[in-house]
Amino acid sequence: MDRAIAIQVSHLTKTYDKHTAVSDLSFEVYGGEIFGLLGPNGAGKSTTLRTIITLLTPTSGTVSVLGHDTVREADLVRRLIGYVPQERAIDRFLTGREHLELLGALYHLSKAEAAKRIAELLKLVELEEAADRAAKTYSGGMKRKLDIACGLLPDPKILFLDEPTLGLDVQSRLRIWEYVRMLKARGMTIVMTTNYLDEADQLCDRLAIIDGGKIKTLGSPTELKIGLGGDIVSLTLKDPSKIATLVAALTKQPAMRAVKATQTGLDIRVESPEKALPAILESANRLDCQLEFIEYHRPRLDDVFIAHTGRSIKDDVPMEKEAV
């Protein structure tokens, strides 16, 4: 690929005391793309993100952002990036506008320059009306919007979002997605962590699946799905004792790529449904395996995740706090 590299992570390892949070991570983020770090809680994605944005120093390995080392040239890196933290990092006593004014001063903008940008950002995130109210009166979605405005204030080359839609209601969530797409259209590079598969699937140009502090796989959502090798036919059998017989019969057939027994039936990876489906049905009939249910689907990101980590992402995610 001849695209410009925005972020280069090489052999990044970060340990706390004896616990290794990430281990020997290497990847690149290209200019202008939305790059996702996907993984369950505690997988190491936040640690990775916080190292890139200079909040943590690597135990070993290096990270460079637009060619600048995040340890030696931390100050330079900070001037190039915007960050939207995972917690609602809001001072409840300040108004939305005061948050942005404070950051304006911390990025050393002149009063006039800051006022101009603040007006634009408040309009962008639709907080103009609430701008002069204390942030403690904001709803969760409004706080998130303010967070994003804060992240955009320095007019960053790269924007970092840590779990941007965690705990948001569906509407706010879609809104945030819209912003992210719009920012990409303006040419901004975006790096985000998420533990929502649909979010990664919808938004990210490329993503890295991280689990246990390591990258399990990396690519565009489509590449990752194709990489699994074909579509999936799931069978549920009326009589589970026949599963083994059917597996044996199907495994030898050329149209099947992989056949796997599950609790209630079989998961079969197939190259093309046209050839595989009749063959499967024929075998099932011949062996007198009555089918309870048959499902055919293109691989989803869930399947990618399970294939690479051996479990579902939901296993480790605590109950979401959905706003009512």
Binding site: T54, L55, L76, P85, E87, A89, L103, L106
Partner: peptide, 16 residues
């Protein structure tokens, strides 16, 4: 409190 609610982290990502 800034440390606990993440505001400090936000300040620390600015070039100050």
């Amino acid at each position: 409190f800034d440390k606990e609610n993440g505001f400090l982290e936000r300040l620390m990502t600015t070039p100050i």
